[in-house]
Amino acid sequence: MAKDIYMGEVSRNEEIRKDFFLMKVTLPSGFVEPMPGQFVMIRIAGLNDPFLSRPISIYSFSRGRSNCSMELLFRVVGKGTRILAGLIKGSLVEISGPLGEGHFAIPKAGNIVFIAGGIGIAPLSLFAENLCRKVCRSSDAMTFYLGAQSADGLIGLNRVHKYCGNIIVCTDDGSAGMKALVTKAFQKDLKKYDPMDTAIYACGPRPMIRALSGMLDAEYFCQVSLEERMACGVGACVGCAVAMKDDLGQKTYKRVCSDGPVFELKDIVWE
């Protein structure tokens, strides 16, 4: 027995853009430092409605002298996130985590490329920060492609600016950056990236990941962080299944929560 459910206290919960919230939670010092790509299951302490906890990826983490502090970036998409959005300073939340066996692997390649759609920036910007601060990768080696429907959905750019030398912003409606899908912007640059010397990391809506899988052949190292509805978060309920190739190339269902949430793009089976 090593893991526990931690009681966290909301220290800030701010709507940084319409429907996008950044929640800061103070946790006991026993909380293990997450690896980029890992997530937590969060629920409001003592409340059974909404019934299930919500999986949210970790945006930032810091350790103080007597406690830890974690930021969660989320978008209001339904009942659970709407209720989380209503939490005020001092609210108590139950958090289990960090969860997920699959996380982003530290690249050896010279070029590091991030591709994020909307809220997908959360785990990728944490990873960029870690690479910069902990592995001492130069910001010049890191390129960040960020896409959103419109300028309103571009969040977390300030943080990306701190760690990534090259930033390409795209919006569907052209209200900021290029008027293009983020995958199209990346595809234009693809020739620049030698598959032997490039590591690609992506997180975003399923169509974005699928488009990437259509343009990257298996030579490229590309890891993606996936999302799925979850009940337990630890691999027991097998609810968050995603079709993947196994070692023999056969289709099998893996669990986003425990086998992932980060997988290799080439292993995904598109059904």
């Binding site: 299930l52 009942k79 659970g80 799925e228 009940a231 968050c240 299944a241 995603v242 269902y253 059904e271």
Partner: peptide
């Protein structure tokens, strides 16, 4: 079964 498999 193919996903989605669960719903609250």
């Amino acid at each position: 079964n193919p996903p989605p498999r669960i719903m609250e």
